[in-house]
Design a protein around this nucleic acid. Sequence first.
DNA 1: GGCAATTAATCAAACGTTTGTATGAGTTAA
DNA 2: TTAACTCATACAAACGTTTGATTAATTGCC
Lengths: 200, 200
Amino acid sequence: MVPIMADNDCRATLIEVATPLFAEKGFNGVSVREIAGLAGVNVSMISYYFGGKEGLYGAVLNEQFAVLQRVAKIAHTATDPLKKFELYVRDTVARYRRNPYLLRFYAGELTNPTPCFATIVKPAIQEVVKTLQEFFTDGLSHHQFREGLEPTDTALALAGMINFYFLLEPATGELVDHSPERDEELIRHIMDIFANGVLK
Amino acid sequence: MVPIMADNDCRATLIEVATPLFAEKGFNGVSVREIAGLAGVNVSMISYYFGGKEGLYGAVLNEQFAVLQRVAKIAHTATDPLKKFELYVRDTVARYRRNPYLLRFYAGELTNPTPCFATIVKPAIQEVVKTLQEFFTDGLSHHQFREGLEPTDTALALAGMINFYFLLEPATGELVDHSPERDEELIRHIMDIFANGVLK
DNA sequence: GGCAATTAATCAAACGTTTGTATGAGTTAA
DNA sequence: TTAACTCATACAAACGTTTGATTAATTGCC
């Protein structure tokens, strides 16, 4: 009854193989035969373990977006509001480095939503935006940030700077050095603009 | 030989109908029968006028990305570097308002590229980034911006703020007012952060 | 402890649909 | 009469899912 370790091999392999395929070609761009073939198992295993192609996609997305829950915990690891924003940027970079497919699902669901968007993606995004928004109101009450800025707009502005940078990588690969060695400089740069702006 | 005006009706209708379908479901999420059915013409018309489904998609994308060529012309309509950046943000907002599907193709091709990415999308994006980059080096030589900021990184940061705002609309619709009435405030807000930062 | 009964896991094969494209006939206007 | 246009229809291939058989492991009972 209790499955031994090897029993989960098929299920785990399917998720592992399906992740890069779904990320790079989208839900409709991959066939169940392509996934099963690359995983070295029979097509029927997808229906057996996940109830169908959509079920497998949902399992992949659940795994991918689970890491976003860590953003809310930043509030407990830092006190300085600006430092919290920097931790968010730093975590985001590290997240995309550790998981190269997350941003594809992120942007893919925003542009061509599947049923998973409402259940998985949208709640995860709203959580992050709300958290960043709280960072700013926190900084406002500490008189660290100047008045007149909308907390949500400001949160989206910072999130946009770092996320768009990675989203544009396929198009700007020759214009900008996207290697991890430059990450520290990128973080410092974005935080510098966010904190001080470009004017003298 | 020369087609009369009515002859283009079929071809034009196909592009018109296919645009929102491709934008919302992606290339693989739409069938030629769905397009032809909604256009009220026969399926074979797609192969007849565009050589196939991919040809129709390419025609749609060409039309969508043609508007991006206007960004380079900003340099001639303003002298102040910061004003050029503001014009870019303003034009971008107006572009997305006038054409609600552009951003979907934009992000869709970045995440799940088709053969059109290399020929249409990537060159268009690189043009915009290079133009913004020149705006910044221009401002640097005029001693308007402070030293130590990378032109390309700075260009991507501003582009990220405005583009990501619209990209996230499906997820943040309840958190932020995305109505056109607030556009002016949004532009002012983003330019304010970009120019001065959030610190006191 | 050993043997039948049961359950879970996996497979090859086939299912009915839908896919994109091609064909050939019919229509219209030059 | 010719050329451009549009149609209904057919086509082979690919799609996601289901089926029934086969194997291996687990359980219940003596």
